[in-house]
């Protein structure tokens, strides 16, 4: 099998993924961009493994690891994005950057929930 086709597909995925990550306006779109990059990495690993015919099967194993980690990432990411949505009513990452200017007067104040010493 020629490696050209899968590698070109991987390059395409990297390009699309990078666009998704760098343009990152919508949090979920950024997440999809990351997933595309991870898919490209997995594709490269599997392709290289089949080309080299390595006995240990490291490539597919690493790919399975990446898929598993990606699943864990999505769980945490969606949880945080949900919290962000509840807080702001949107998940636009650029707006956050503007709003996140630390409002010092609100920070660090002793809060009611902390028990007195």
């Amino acid at each position: 099998m020629s490696p050209a086709l899968p590698m070109m597909l991987a390059a395409l995925l990297v390009g699309a993924g990078l666009y998704g990550v760098l343009a990152r306006r919508h949090a979920v779109l950024m997440l999809i961009g990351v997933e595309l990059l991870l898919a490209a990495a997995g594709l490269m690993l599997v392709t290289a493994d089949s080309l080299l015919g390595a006995e240990t099967g490291s490539g597919p194993v690493a790919t399975i690891f990446i898929i598993t980690i990606a699943a864990a990432e999505v769980v945490v990411a969606l949880a945080v994005f949900t919290a962000l949505y509840r807080l702001r009513g949107h998940v636009d990452l650029d707006v956050r950057a503007a709003a996140a200017e630390p409002d010092r007067s609100d920070f660090d104040e002793a809060d009611g929930e902390v028990p007195a010493r």
């Binding site: 990550v21 997440l31 990059l37 980690i69 990432e73 945080v80 956050r96 709003a99 996140a100």
Partner: peptide, 25 residues
């Protein structure tokens, strides 16, 4: 603020992990 902080950390770590995975591949 903490949610914003988490989002900042999360987005950076996601992008970095993707780069690391590409590097590994």
């Amino acid at each position: 603020g903490a949610i914003d902080a988490a989002v900042a950390l999360l987005t950076t770590s996601l992008a970095s992990f993707a780069l690391l995975a590409l590097g590994a591949a």
